[in-house]
Design a protein around this nucleic acid. Structure first.
Lengths: 120, 120
DNA sequence: CACCACTACTTGACATCGCCAGGTACCTGG
DNA sequence: CCAGGTACCTGGCGATGTCAAGTAGTGGTG
């Protein structure tokens, strides 16, 4: 079964992921997309990442520098600022809080599914 | 400290929560709002819940019935349909998948300024 | 009786943000 | 020169949470 990936579920979490990945290692958009996919977010699209990165920069959470590449156009490397690191910490707290609320609710025993138990 | 509740993080999860709460016990909008708040989502607003409930109904995931009340206007009780139960199961899987990807990334040790390459 | 608070539900305008599609540009190899 | 991979950006769209305001029924208070 496909994960039936709901775009909505990613809302807000993406920028957190971006900040985190950038905090672990400075990198550029194209690379971030690949790292995200390698992490399991195979459906992630560039059209989500680049705008998110741009937003982060506009908000002063990351800073950039251009670095020429041997295999294509110049890469724009992103790195979190102090504000970005702070935002990451706060966002992580929010995420954890949400998970702490949602998870226990969703993971209780199934409440008598009135349908066939053999759905595949 | 304030939970710094990011509205975006709730996207998509709310309908899942509603479906789950409804699966556990048939109830009406106003009651759902209270249950959500009791669960810790204190910032949830009616303006989020009612439209979400209406959407769920429009999508055939819940069915409703009106019940007169002695303490105010009639209550609209919601209850998941078979499709709703199915959607709940699928949505829960999606949520779990997302958490499985996001959580480990966010919960690694706090990133110091990326300057020590001697980290294992 | 008028007014207000609480219960309940609905709706419209608004903002955010991921996605799709399309576009620009650089570089290497045939 | 062309094809294809690398790399980045933008416009328009759609989904959905929030705010604010509106409609209504019920009961308590002055």
């Amino acid at each position: 079964m496909a994960p039936t990936h709901d775009p909505q579920l990613l809302k807000g979490v993406l920028s957190l992921l971006l900040l985190r990945l950038l905090a672990e290692r400075e990198s550029y958009g194209y690379d971030i997309v690949q790292r995200l996919r390698a992490l399991g977010l195979s459906d992630i699209s560039e059209g989500s990442v680049y705008p998110a990165l741009a937003r982060l920069e506009r908000e002063g959470r990351v800073q950039t520098r251009l670095v020429a590449s041997r295999s294509g156009p110049a890469r724009k490397y992103y790195r979190p600022t102090a504000a970005g690191t702070r935002a990451l910490a706060e966002g992580t707290t929010s995420w954890l809080s949400l998970v702490a609320v949602v998870h226990p609710v969703l993971v209780r025993r199934p409440p008598d599914p009135p349908t066939s138990p053999e759905d595949t």
